[in-house]
Every structure is written in C-alpha cells, then in structure tokens.
C-alpha cells in the first residue's frame, strides 16, 4: 500500500529509456504487475522509467505475421481483429487477464517481463512459437518465447534491456485455443493450456501445446504434441496426450496451499482435452 521512495522518469523514446535506466531502476509500463509488489514492499526499485507512452512500443501490425508493440494493452490485443484472425488463442488469453480495468492498463511487454507463472499470455506465446524482440544498450536481439521464459519470475532479459515487441507467425490456418481453469481467489490460471493444431483433412499434421499455471513457467509439451500429431484426435489420442502432458510438465510443477502441484498436474490433462475440443469447436 505504501511503496518505498523512488524516482520517476518518463521516457519519450526507446533510446531515452535505455539511457535513463539506472542499476536499481525498473521499467514501468502499465504497472499492473510491478506496482502491486511495490505497494506490498516486496520490491523496491529506486527508479521507475515509464515507457508506457513511447510511440515505438505501441500498436499491433499484421504483415505476414503479427508484431505486437510491448506497450500494447491486453485489451487492445484481445479486441484486435488482426490478432483474432492470426492467433485467436492469444486474443482469448489476453481477454482473460485480470479484469477489464487491468486489461485497459496492463501491457503484453510488462506481463512477460514479470513472467508470472500463472499468467495467461505466456502460455500462448510459447505454444505458438512467438519471438520476443529486445533492445539493450548494446543493440537489438530476438529470443524465442520458449527460451525467453527461464523460471519462476525469471526471463532471458539482461539488466537494462527492454522488450520492444513480440512477433508471432500467422496461425490463421491453424485451429488454436487457450483454455484456462481460473483460480477462484485470484483468477490467475490454476492451469492454462494453449494448443495450436495444423489439420490436414481429419488428421492433425502438427500440434503445438503449452501449459502454464500448473508450472513455474510456460512449458512447451513435446510429449503431448507427439501424441496428437498424426492422429485424428480421437479419444485414444486425446487420452494419450493427456497422460503425456503430465510427464511433459513434471519437472516444472508449481502449486499453492489450496491447489497443490499434484492436482494441477492432473488438471493439465483434463484441460488439454478441453483445449483441443475448443480449438476444433
């Protein structure tokens, strides 16, 4: 409620943001991940560099694939026709973050930089093969989403680096979905499952699957993908995938007092089936 003292700088450009940030500083965009932890005094950066209004970080563009500015809000993404067309699972996930007030302020860049394991967008970004575009004092680089999320609240970002945008391939020819089992208290995901299915007639040519919420980070699930690929997504395939996904996430499980790891692991299987059904629906 009462954060420690901090300095505040509003940056007008990415260059200005990068040159302003100090060793004990943090970038502030929508503030919906950072400010709550500061109010609880769980984090106490001495400086906030506000990047929320930098023009280069705004907007969503469609050009073969999607490029989403780091400061695009969850609501902007959820209601974007381009995102709905090219990656409907991401629109769905962003539409399930927090409540409307949170979605109006919270940004995709801030969300993934915070890397809350139970947040919704990272799971879709990992499933759909997104790329995180990063700018630092030494230049720009890009990291695949799967490598970007390292561990609990831990990403591949180095000190002083800034996410500028997220790129996604055009998934409009896939069947994709994000299905979430919301925690009754926080509405974060107890488990969230994203699937992206490339169908060849009645057969699944390729399946991409990721799980979040039940895990310390969004996890790509190769076992479940293998169990689905090459099948007609019949009950046997779904059951096999539901079993496989539990193994895929076994090393990364997370839980809390009400919803322990073991339960979340089981629910990943249930919600994988529901995600496949939603994608096909």
């Amino acid at each position: 409620m009462w954060p420690n003292k901090f300095d505040y700088v509003r940056a007008g450009s990415v260059d200005e943001a990068l040159s302003s940030i100090t060793d004990d500083g943090k970038f502030l965009a929508g503030g919906h991940s950072l400010l709550p932890v500061m109010k609880l005094r769980l984090d106490a950066p001495e400086q906030l560099v506000d990047i929320g209004r930098i023009p280069e970080l705004q907007g969503i563009s469609a050009n073969g694939g999607l490029t989403i500015g780091a400061a695009a809000t969850h609501d902007a993404i959820a209601s974007s026709a381009d995102v709905q067309a090219m990656c409907s699972a991401l629109a769905s996930a962003c539409g399930q973050v927090g409540d409307q007030g949170v979605r109006n302020f919270g940004t995709l860049g801030g969300n993934i930089a915070h890397a809350d394991p139970a947040s919704d967008p990272p799971t879709v970004l990992v499933a759909c093969g997104a790329t995180v575009n990063i700018q630092g004092a030494d230049g720009a680089r890009s990291v695949g989403a799967e490598d970007f999320f390292v561990d609990l609240f831990e990403t591949a970002l180095d000190d002083g680096e800034l996410i500028t945008s997220v790129s996604l391939p055009n998934c409009s020819d896939c069947q994709c979905a994000y299905v979430k089992f919301p925690h009754p208290a926080s509405r974060y995901a107890i488990v969230g499952v994203a699937v992206c299915l490339k169908m060849d007639g009645g057969t699944c040519a390729q399946a991409d699957v990721a799980v979040g919420g039940a895990t310390v980070k969004a996890v790509k699930c190769a076992g479940a993908e293998a169990a689905l690929a090459g099948t007609t997504l019949d009950d046997a395939a779904l059951n096999a995938a539901a079993e496989a996904v539990k193994s895929d996430i076994a090393d990364w499980l997370a839980g809390d007092i009400a919803y322990p790891e073991s339960y979340r692991q089981q629910m990943a299987g249930v919600f994988l089936k529901r995600a496949v059904a939603a994608a096909q629906g």
Binding site: L40, P184, A185, S186, D256, I257, A258
Partner: peptide
C-alpha cells in the same frame, strides 16, 4: 465453497491477500 484463512505450523497467515484468500465473486 471457497473462503478459509490458513496458517502454517509457525502461525504465519498463508492467506494474507486476496490472491490466496478467496472472496466470493
């Protein structure tokens, strides 16, 4: 269905915020 304050064995309140203490919605 959902509310309940939980302490650990040392008497620390584990449901110290609405992230864990489930208010009805």
């Amino acid at each position: 269905l959902c509310e309940g304050a939980v302490y650990d064995e040392n008497g620390q309140l584990l449901t110290g915020t609405m992230m864990d203490y489930c208010m009805p919605k």
